[in-house]
């Protein structure tokens, strides 16, 4: 666990940090944060329980327990990461542990949306590049500099062209990943839609 947690705000253009690799396809949100930790009315203490059951099973050798990963902030994963439940508790737990960006082969849809909505950019890279990072013998101390403007990730001897949905990239650069204010701007359009939708009128009881 890192010291004080401060949630991201405003524009996100650059993320620098140490990588932490988690190997495996289809890692679901029940594994990221088991359901018993969903018994809460805020997200504050989720960071310490991230991957709780996997970590217990591996008795200290889980990547999230290794000393050398203590300050890591860029998570490297394989395919369909975050599948399963829609619980935002999963990215919230990762974020509170210290994760600021995720690079993977692919992400489950709802998990991806949740990450964007709380300010964690998710990027994709082909399997070959992910493996290159995950197998890098210096992985322990692999530092990446992610540049969102150019969708680039650079390390000392490595450089990757990251993929990210254009809409997500723009939202991070403009700060509109926190969507509420952009949505509220269209208040008149919302009212009009409400008045036009056929079924609202059928359902007056």
């Amino acid at each position: 666990m890192k010291s004080e947690f401060t949630p991201p705000i405003g524009t996100i253009t650059q993320i620098k940090g140490q990588c932490i690799s988690l190997i495996g396809n289809d890692i679901d949100t029940d594994r990221i944060i088991p359901a018993r930790f969903l018994k809460c009315v805020n997200f504050d203490s989720l960071g310490e329980s991230v991957f709780e059951d996997d970590r217990k099973t591996l008795k200290g050798s889980h990547p999230f327990d290794l000393k050398e990963n203590k300050n890591a902030s860029i998570l490297i994963v394989n395919s369909n990461f975050g599948c399963g439940s829609s619980r935002e508790h999963a990215p919230q737990a990762l974020m509170r542990w210290g994760i600021k960006a995720i690079i993977g082969e692919s992400f489950a849809d709802i998990f991806y949306n949740n990450c964007i909505a709380i300010g964690i950019p998710c990027f994709t890279l082909p399997n070959k590049s992910i493996k290159e990072i995950q197998n890098n013998k210096d992985n322990k101390f692999l530092f990446l500099e992610i540049d969102l403007k150019n969708s680039l990730a650079k390390a000392k001897d490595l450089s990757f062209n990251l993929e990210i949905k254009e809409s997500s990239r723009k939202m991070f650069l403009s700060g509109e990943w926190d969507a509420t204010s952009a949505l509220l701007m269209n208040n008149n359009l919302i009212e009009n839609k409400f008045n036009q939708l056929p079924y609202i009128k059928f359902n007056i009881h």
Binding site: E166, S167, K170, M171, S174, E176, L183, N186, L189, K193
Partner: peptide
Amino acid sequence: ISKLPGGS
């Protein structure tokens, strides 16, 4: 309702 500036 609309297309947001980001494209969503």
